[in-house]
């Protein structure tokens, strides 16, 4: 059975179900006492614990509790706040399993919002996953739909590794069908959000919806676009992308991250290495430009990918005749 839920409710539903299922699951963070976590009060203040503004200690402590058998979920609020505690994210929790020859495991989930491109200015709008997607031992999930928000959260909590679960601020109130009860979305399995035969578009998070809108517009022009959402960028399902490119021969990569720290750049590299013979046109990347986001709306929009830019890129790759490379 499915029903319509907002993305934020789907995400919280998964977390609530996991906390009910497994009493080792904890929820800590600066905002876990707030209204949007009202339904978590039933787990008690020992399992749902408000922390000081001490990101380094919060994440380090979650790691320690995880080493001792708990499964903490840290709500770090905003992706940029993690930068304050970067050592704990990319140099402690993710490495303990490896460095101890597999003895230790740190099953923590670090949950944070990103990409609040609605005038939140330079320090609250970025999509900084490019900095962490190549970090060994760390998994990174970027849900784009309410169903994925639920399924990826449940999988994140059950994973035995540190998982960075990045939810998109602009999607929080977007509604969509969500399965009831236990629902898991596997990591490392891309989802074809829209099948198509002419051009492959790979997008994550909020840009998935921009890509789908562009695809609708382009279908009127006779271009059949396939939209793929990797859902997790570590592990990254390169196979599904290569298989799609083998069918379409054309690839547009969409990413809210700045171009040179993007998932797009990584996928472009993989396709160049493993799928070049399938390509009938050069890959085009539609990413954020390499700048901090400005506060003022016209400048903000100029920097970010949007429906029009995606459609233009698709037309560009579709317009290149076979054999032109």
């Amino acid at each position: 059975m499915t029903r319509e839920l907002p993305y934020v409710a789907a995400m919280n539903e998964a977390l609530h179900l996991e906390m009910t299922r497994d009493e080792d699951v904890l929820l800590i963070g600066q905002t876990v006492g707030e209204e949007h976590y009202e339904s978590f009060k039933e787990f008690g203040s020992a399992r749902v614990r408000v922390t000081p503004i001490s990101e380094t200690a919060e994440i380090g402590m979650a790691t320690g509790a995880a080493l001792a058998g708990k499964r903490p979920v840290v709500d770090a609020t905003m992706a940029e706040f993690l930068l304050v505690a970067m050592g704990q994210v990319v140099n402690e929790a993710n490495r303990v399993h490896y460095m101890t020859g597999g003895q230790l495991r740190a099953p923590i989930v670090i949950k944070a919002g990103y990409g609040f491109a609605a005038g939140w200015a330079g320090q609250h709008t970025s999509a900084p996953y490019g900095m962490v997607m190549g970090v060994p031992g760390l998994k990174v999930a970027l849900p784009s739909t309410p169903a994925d928000a639920k399924g990826l959260m449940a999988t994140a909590v059950r994973d035995d590794n540190p998982v960075l679960y990045l939810h998109h601020f602009l999607l929080l109130l977007e509604r969509g069908p969500v399965p009831e009860g236990e629902y898991l979305v596997p990591f490392g399995v891309a989802d074809i959000k829209r099948p198509g035969s002419d051009v492959t578009v790979v997008a994550t998070g909020w840009t998935v919806h921009r890509a789908l809108a562009a695809a609708e517009r382009l279908s009127d022009e006779g271009i059949d676009v396939e939209v793929i959402d990797p859902r997790t960028i570590a592990p990254l399902d390169v196979e599904t992308i290569l298989a799609s490119v083998a069918r379409t021969g054309r690839l547009v990569l969409v990413d809210q991250a700045t171009r040179h720290a993007s998932v797009s750049a990584v996928i472009a590299g993989e396709v160049a290495e493993h799928g070049l013979s399938s390509l009938r046109a050069p890959v085009v990347q539609v990413t954020a430009l390499d700048t901090t986001l400005a506060y003022s709306q016209p400048m903000e929009e100029y920097v970010l990918p949007d429906e029009g830019k995606i459609a233009a890129a698709v037309r560009q790759v579709a317009g290149v005749k076979a054999g032109a490379m």
């Binding site: 503004i53 706040f81 930068l83 200015a121 330079g122 320090q123 609250h124 506060y295 003022s296």
Partner: peptide, 27 residues
């Protein structure tokens, strides 16, 4: 705007008057 619209409410600065700016990240 004092920062040309780049910064907004959380990022005011006026170097000439000795106001060296702000961070939107606590501490």
């Amino acid at each position: 705007g004092i920062c040309g619209g780049y910064g907004g409410s959380m990022h005011l600065a006026d170097i000439a008057r000795g106001f060296l700016g702000t961070s939107a990240i606590v501490a």
